[in-house]
Structures are given as structure tokens and as C-alpha cells.
Amino acid sequence: MTTEPTPTTLPFDGNSAGESLAGDAWRRLKQNRAATFSLFLLGLIAIACVAGPWLTPWGLNEVDWNAFTAPPSIADGHYAGTDANGRDLLTRTLYGGQISLSVALVATLVSLVIGVLYGAIAGYMGGRVDNLMMRFVDIMYSLPFMFLVILLMVVFGRNILLIYAAIGAVEWLDMSRIVRGQTLALKRREFVEAAHALGVKSTTIVTRHLIPNTLGPVIVYVTLTVPKVILLESFLSFLGLGVQEPMTSWGVLISEGKDMMQSAPWMLLVPSAFLAITLLCLNFLGDGLRDALDPKTR
């Protein structure tokens, strides 16, 4: 939005050079210990969230009538304690991770698709179209976004996927600006002009040449959007507008736990730890990717 990022390489077409670009970035990412470790941890958390609920001895909504708000115990199989309804906290946390992560991915994906297409089209068309499209983005920026999200939740409360698709539909603004900036710079380069001269269709140029070459900053931005959406989800949970029983999410679990921080600290600590580690890892990964993909920081 402020500095228009310059394209990172001089690829001639998307393929062979693109691979070496990716390979180069990967190599540099691997040198960044914080980022690789984060990537590893994220993978671990994702696997645990997907597989975990089947492996824990208790079911998601199974009530242990003998253990309400019970502290962690190996003997009972409540490795992270139980919640105030006697349900196994570890199972719920892992399951909540599925919801939190998929919600974040859905929202990010929606913002990615809209933002990249919108930005690429604006940048490629240029001139009056670009001007008009960017004016619209400016207007969207002035919306009291959070208030609209709360209103959306009040209206469509029960359908979470719809809601997060809607959040994604508002989160695309930054993305579109980044992609537009990239595209503006790219389209003056030789390989795009060459494609033009060869009579390649505009849509093909945008999808085959321009968008692949904006991927670097976009990937960085994605790693930053995912934590943003996860936090947003927890914020909505705090307001009582989060996902509904019997489903759960990290945000819901944390906002249940925060009231018990003194009497049943595990209820706050367990889901918070998962959330915090995930967010930290995503942020480190994002920083690492930025460094790896940006030639200026070499």
C-alpha cells in the first residue's frame, strides 16, 4: 500500500524459472531456523487437530459424570482436565482447532481469490478502470468493518461457514492493493509485452503470467491473514457470537476459560497454549517467508 513492491525476478514464463525461484526461496527459508521450526510445529498441530479427537479416550460431547471441572489426570484419561460440563478438554481443544483452523482457511481463501483477481484486473487494465476499482477499495476501507461483522453475525448467526466467507469477502482489500501494485510493475516488463505482441489473450496473460508472479508477497500476506482471522473468531466468541454448541473452537474455549482463570486454570491455559503457539508460528513463518522471497533483504 505504501511502497510498491518491485517484482522479485525476471521470469520468462511461469514454469522452469518459477521452479527455481520457489526452490531458491525454499532453500533460504530452510536457513531460517525460527521459520522452519514454526512450519514443523504448525504441521504437528494440524495433524494433532485432525487425528487427535479420534485418539483421545473421550468423545467430543461425552460427559464424564464423575469429573466436572476436573484438573488434568492421566488415570481418568483427561490429560488436560475437563470443562464445567464434564467433557474432556483435550478432545474439545483439538476439535476446536479443526474449526478454528478451517474457519481461518476458508476466510483467507475467499479473501485470496477475490483480492488476487480484483487486484490483478485493476492493475492490468489500468487507467480509468483501475482508478474506479481502487476508489471502491478506498470506500470499503472506510467501513467500520468490525461493526458490520457483528451485524452479520447477528443476522446469519447459525451458519459459520457463510459468516467466515463473508469475513473473507471483506478481508480482501489489502490483498487487492498488493496484487495491483505488483501487477502494475510487472505488466511493463518484457515478458508480458512479448506475450501481448504474440497475441495472447488478456485473460491468459493475467492468469498465466501476472498472477503467478505476484505469489511471493501474496503468500506472505496469507500467513498474516490466517492469524488475523483466528483472532477475529475468538473476539466474536467473546461477544457470544462464535460457533454454536456442540461445536467448539479455540475462541469459544478460551472465552469459557477466561472466567475460570483462578479456579480452573487449565480451562484457560490449554486452549490458549494451542492458539498462542499457532499464532506465533504463523507470524514467524510469515516473517521468514518475507525474508526468503524478498530479494532486497538478501
Partner: peptide, 14 residues
């Protein structure tokens, strides 16, 4: 919406 109502409702279901 209320913490207590939620918990009682869950218990009834179980």
C-alpha cells in the same frame, strides 16, 4: 445466550 443456560442445556442432551 448465557453460560449457565448453555451448560444446563448440554447436560440435558447428555
Amino acid at each position: 445466550t448465557s453460560e449457565d443456560h448453555r451448560r444446563v442445556s448440554i447436560a440435558l442432551g447428555a
